[in-house]
């Protein structure tokens, strides 16, 4: 019982996913569902990491290639890839990743600060890193990756 209460108060549940040989995670509360890959409709003038849009039970859902969004190589989506449907602010987006690997329960003490590295991109989206069973998992702030339209307007 004590564990459960502690978990509710200051524990976080995270969903970990794999892109290439790296592992990342996001807060489970922002994840709506996980589904398989379906071909997306291409959008004109879209940035390269926006693969297009799919039909999610009547709603139009943009699909983001997380690999490209995080500055890595382009993903060639196959049926083995999965889409994490996540809520970011008022919008819902689909994140294309290689696989979902784990559900983690952690507390704030488990989160280590992001190492001081030169690249601004990684520093911007990484909220910290976790060391779980010898693996290194990077905690991502989706709000930074997909800021609102207002703050984005040129």
């Amino acid at each position: 019982m004590t564990y459960a209460v502690k978990n509710l108060i200051d524990g976080h549940e995270l969903i970990a996913f794999r892109i290439g040989d790296q592992e990342f995670c996001v807060n489970i509360m922002s994840v709506r569902e996980i589904r398989g890959w379906t071909p997306a409709t291409r959008m004109p003038h879209a940035p390269p990491h926006v693969l297009g849009v799919i039909n999610l039970r009547g709603a139009v859902l943009p699909i983001i290639d997380m690999s490209q969004r995080l500055g890595m190589k382009r993903t060639e989506p196959t049926v083995r890839h999965v889409i994490i449907v996540a809520q970011v602010g008022p919008a819902t987006v689909g994140l294309l990743v290689d696989a979902v690997s784990d559900i983690l329960t952690i507390t704030d003490e488990n989160i280590q600060p992001t190492p001081d590295i030169a690249n601004e991109t990684e520093k911007a989206y990484a909220r910290g890193i976790l060391a779980i069973e010898g693996r290194m998992i990077c905690l991502i702030d989706l709000g930074v990756l997909f800021p609102h339209i207002e703050s984005e307007a040129a």
């Binding site: 926006v50 983001i64 990756l145 339209i149 984005e152």
Partner: peptide, 11 residues
Amino acid sequence: LRQDISLAATG
């Protein structure tokens, strides 16, 4: 067409 493009998802 591109002139007023602003993509929420581009970051």
